[in-house]
């Protein structure tokens, strides 16, 4: 049975960009920044998920998607609190199930419940409610736009901020030349430990990979979790036109592994054939400029490189 489903999925896979749904579920025009990588990721995701959706949102950049009295979404939207979107998703899911089972709500009225939250809330105060919801096997999709800091408040350090990055609350100083001295929290590993039916990382620069992953997830039940790399022109310090280049370098240097966890296995769906040196990615962003000037910090760059190499060594063929 499983093989049949995989086979049919294989046949219906998106192969090129022109295969993607030409309909937009998010209309252009919102208060989000120009060049926001996360919004591009969500736009692609929603093309797959369609309009019968309800998005529960955590406090963060994407709260600005719907500013009264406007919404660019075809589906429904509920702003919640910073740590509350997942329990709100639980309430909506439970309510719709009750109405279908007990009160005769037609199946056609059902909604796919989606959580949209940034890396700040996801890694920090939203982690415990999410852990509980995965444990309860809540039927929902989690879309984390990961710009590696608290972006909406002006770019402060979060659990996802990488080693060597400058944020407003991890500034680089002579005493602390790296800026952030912590490495990025392994959210994928934390979520994976809950053994959800589906878990993946996606990049707006890999629309086919992203779309196929959402398509796969759409056909499944239970918690389906996504971490979307969200190059952030304002926080990371690059020209908005370069979002795709930054996103590409994140993958090509191996810094942001594109992968999925399904049936108990991790599969890298976009494995860089030959990894570029990490500095190719770092040097283009203002948040890493202190690693190159006024004095080049080879020690910190080497540490970042060695962390990336150590990650990939686990998966060497």
């Amino acid at each position: 049975m499983k093989a049949t489903i995989s086979d049919s999925l294989e046949e219906s896979k998106y192969k090129k960009v022109t295969d993607l749904n030409p309909e937009e579920e998010i209309a252009p025009g919102s208060a989000l920044c120009a060049g926001c990588g996360g919004l591009e990721g969500m736009r692609l995701a929603m093309k797959v998920l369609g309009e019968n959706t309800l998005t529960c949102n955590a406090a963060g950049c994407f709260t600005l998607i719907s500013v009264y009295p406007f919404t660019p979404l075809k589906g429904s939207w509920l702003y919640t609190t910073m740590s509350g979107p997942v329990p709100a998703a639980q309430g909506v899911r439970d309510a719709l199930d009750i109405r279908m089972q007990k009160h005769g709500l037609p199946k056609a009225e059902d909604l796919q419940v989606i959580v949209v939250a940034g890396d700040g809330s996801t890694n920090d105060m939203g982690l415990s409610p999410t852990s509980a919801a995965i444990h309860r096997n809540l039927d929902f999709i989690y879309f984390c736009y990961d710009n590696e800091a608290y972006g909406n408040t002006g770019f402060q350090h979060s659990g996802a901020s990488p080693l060597g990055s400058y944020t407003m609350t991890s500034p680089n100083t002579p005493e602390h030349p790296a800026g952030s001295e912590q490495t990025k929290k392994d959210l994928f590993g934390i979520w994976m430990a809950h053994n959800p039916p589906y878990l993946a990382t996606v990049s707006p620069r890999e629309p086919i990979d992203l779309s196929n992953k959402f398509k796969k997830a759409k056909g499944m039940k239970g918690p389906r979790l996504f971490i979307c790399l969200s190059p952030c022109p304002t926080g990371w310090g690059f020209d908005p036109k370069d979002t795709h280049l930054i996103a590409k370098l994140a993958v090509d240097t191996g810094i942001f592994p594109i992968k999925e966890f399904v049936d108990g296995k991790v599969i890298h769906t976009k494995r860089p054939r030959k990894r570029l040196p990490v500095e190719k990615y770092l040097e283009r962003q203002k948040r890493f400029q202190h690693l190159f000037a006024p004095k080049r910090r080879d020690d910190i760059i080497a540490q970042i490189q060695s962390n990336v190499d150590a990650y990939w060594e686990q998966y060497d063929e």
């Binding site: 509350g84 309430g91 009750i98 409610p129």
Partner: peptide, 28 residues
């Protein structure tokens, strides 16, 4: 009783679920 009883992970989560369910048309 008919419907659903859900064990939540905190009061914060519990009230969020309660409010969202009420916004979705059930008596909570």
């Amino acid at each position: 009783m008919h419907g659903k009883y859900t064990n939540m992970d905190s009061e914060h989560s519990m009230f969020m679920a309660a409010g969202a369910a009420a916004a979705s048309g059930v008596r909570v």
